[in-house]
């Protein structure tokens, strides 16, 4: 029934779609895997002897430090986003439905605005003679301007600022699904507020937490322009290392290996997310 002559349109659609995805998604990803096990070559980027040098190089203390520091900043970003976002998503479900739509809209406005420009706006606030310092000094809270820009804290603030909506939206989705009767049942069965929170609310919102963590943690390791603008040279992300290795040092195997480690981290988080969904009996997509 589905022969080529009978359904030329179907065939054309499938060829186009497959062609695009195979050429621009599958092939490039395989190339990166291939590049990560090849040898660095100054002329043609890569040469043949296959080896795991690039992965070994990742274990080099110099890079390991950068990686761990980046992981630390990403983890702090995720934690802060979670601490702000969890009660935020909960509070969102407490206001009227009409107002909720408006508030969600206000939350995605930043998602549609240029992230570079928003990072730059933070720079206006955090600079040594910037607005925040001026405000604090004129209020008499501090005597001397604080050095806020080009610090680890500035990078974390920048990442939180850019990524917070990505934590809130999946959390809002699970809180919105949270059924009031379950909470009442927990209360009727004699559970206090804390017990209800620990045994009912936390497990039911866990998939949202993990989705949020996934959407924040990984970008928080890759957004290289945030340290470039706010962090100075000592607070680098994995993204900065990958970018430098590819565009400046021309060490492709190393850059590729670093990006594969990021991808594996993503796969691991996605796996955890699926498990958590299955546990509460909602089959993951």
């Amino acid at each position: 029934m589905s022969s080529v002559t009978q359904q030329p349109f179907r065939t054309a659609v499938l060829v186009l779609v497959w062609g695009w995805l195979l050429f621009l998604v599958l092939t490039p990803n395989l190339l990166v895997v291939g590049a990560s096990v090849m040898t660095r070559d100054p002329g043609s980027f890569l040469s043949l002897p296959l080896n795991l040098d690039a992965y070994r190089q990742l274990m080099n203390p110099l890079y390991l430090d950068v990686f761990l520091h980046s992981l630390y900043m990403a983890a702090m970003t995720t934690l802060i986003c979670l601490l702000i976002g969890y009660p935020f998503a909960w509070a969102l479900t407490k206001v009227g439905k009409q107002r909720q739509m408006l508030l969600i809209f206000l939350l995605i406005v930043p998602f549609w605005t240029n992230s570079l420009v928003r990072t730059y706006a933070l720079k206006l606030l955090l600079a040594t003679n910037g607005l925040l310092n001026n405000a604090l000094m004129s209020l008499g809270i501090i005597e001397e301007p604080l050095r806020m820009l080009y610090t680890e804290g500035a990078v974390i603030v920048g990442l939180v600022y850019l990524l917070l909506p990505f934590m809130i939206l999946p959390l809002y989705a699970v809180f919105d699904d949270l059924r009031e009767d379950l909470l009442r049942a927990s209360h009727d069965l004699g559970a206090g507020r804390l017990a209800t929170f620990v045994h009912v609310i936390v497990p039911l919102t866990l998939p949202g937490v993990l989705a949020g963590v996934m959407l924040v943690l990984l970008p928080a390791m890759g957004l290289f322009f945030v340290p470039d603008i706010l962090g100075g040279s000592r607070n680098l992300l994995v993204g900065n290392v990958i970018k430098n290795q590819f565009l400046d040092a021309r060490n492709w195997p190393f850059g590729a290996a670093a990006s594969i480690v990021l991808t594996l981290a993503m796969a691991f988080l996605m796996f955890a997310h699926r498990l958590s969904k299955r546990r509460i009996g909602e089959d993951g997509v």
Binding site: L24, N29, V32, S259
Partner: peptide, 30 residues
């Protein structure tokens, strides 16, 4: 291969931008 197609779309959406970026650069140079 419908699952593979879905999978590839999912990869594009979920993988960190920088991973997508270097894979495309590698392809274009190749």
């Amino acid at each position: 291969g419908k699952k593979l197609l879905n999978g590839m779309l999912f990869i594009v959406m979920m993988s960190p931008e920088i991973v997508l970026a270097i894979s495309l650069l590698a392809l274009f140079l190749l």
